[in-house]
């Protein structure tokens, strides 16, 4: 198989074309939302939402079959977004408390799935995705869910950035922290929903977190973060699908598509990290995969003239 075949020809096949379309939309949206996740330090809440969505997927599948997946996940995700926003506002930020709630929801999902006949197959599809077998009828709903998340973030983007930078100043300017958090958490939840049907609930987090972290490494300019994250995510999704196809069809080694995409994301991050440390393009700061201190609002006396 030639390189052109893998990069372009493969996507003439209907199921590959559908996978590429959905993944490109999702990657761009996850990249944009992911920049806010990075700036707000919401990595843990995002992880929580991926767990909260799982019982929704399982119940949706049990009740409505494959057609029940998206509505079930959407309901669970929005409930999860509400619950996590409330936990955060109630000051319950203990990792242990959140982790207990989330593993509980995850176990509910597993119990529901275990009632079905094809336990192992369905669990695998929910956890690791089925990007290559997206039914044609689901393409449009998945794109709509992704674009809804994008719209929620774009409409509130100025205010979200203000809140991320200076929560008190944002409140003083009349912005409601509750509304902004609900909108952002719901947008993250919708990305998780769309991604759960494609690359699976366990791998979603890479889509949300890696592009934002890459953008932080590449640029320190605020408005460049979003295009950089979106382009990185789109290219990595495309290369990931192409690589999976090339290896599976060309070399006969069956690579799971979703995991291959995530692997390409992480390798891309590694290369950018290497490049940024070699060329020193990152001007300042930490901005890696670690949740940074911007989320905690902890006083940072560094740099204050005394």
């Amino acid at each position: 198989m030639s390189l052109t075949d893998a990069l372009f020809g493969a996507f003439a096949i209907p199921f590959m074309g559908r996978a590429l379309l959905v993944m490109l939309v999702l990657a761009v949206v996850a990249g944009v939302v992911g920049v806010l996740v990075n700036l707000r330090g919401l990595e843990f809440i995002s992880d929580g939402l991926t767990h909260a969505v799982f019982p929704g997927l399982a119940i949706g599948l049990a009740v409505g079959g494959t057609a029940g997946l998206l509505p079930g996940a959407a309901i669970a995700a929005l409930a999860g977004a509400l619950a996590l926003t409330w936990l955060d506002r109630a000051g319950i930020t203990s990792d242990a408390a959140i982790a207990i709630v989330l593993t509980a929801t995850f176990s509910i999902g597993v119990i529901v799935v275990s009632r079905s006949d094809d336990y192992a197959g369905e669990l695998e599809a929910l956890l690791f995705g089925r990007v290559l077998t997206i039914p044609p009828a689901e393409v449009v709903p998945l794109i709509i869910v992704s674009l809804a998340a994008l719209a929620m973030v774009l409409v509130t983007l100025k205010q979200q950035l203000y809140r991320a930078f200076d929560a008190k100043g944002s409140r003083a300017a009349g912005d409601s922290a509750l509304v902004l958090d609900l909108v952002l958490n719901s947008a993250i939840a919708l990305v998780v929903v769309a991604a759960a049907s494609t690359i699976g609930t366990l791998l979603v987090l890479a889509l949300l977190i890696v592009p934002g972290a890459v953008a932080r490494l590449v640029t320190a300019r605020l408005w460049w973060l979003f295009p950089v994250a979106a382009v990185f995510a789109a290219v990595a999704a495309w290369l990931g699908l192409a690589l999976g196809y090339a290896v599976s069809v060309g070399a006969g080694v069956d690579l799971p598509a979703g995991s291959t995409v995530v692997a390409v994301f992480v390798v891309g991050y590694g290369l950018v990290l290497l490049g940024s440390s070699v060329f020193g393009r990152r001007l300042r700061g930490s901005g890696g995969l670690e949740p940074d201190s911007s989320s905690s609002g902890a006083p940072r006396p560094a740099g204050v003239a005394r």
Partner: peptide, 20 residues
């Protein structure tokens, strides 16, 4: 809103936040 501006203590802000 529209009337009050608040000047916080700048030490509370993250110096790594990518903003000019």
């Amino acid at each position: 809103s529209g009337m009050i501006a608040f000047l916080p203590q700048s030490a509370e802000l993250d110096p790594d936040f990518p903003i000019s």
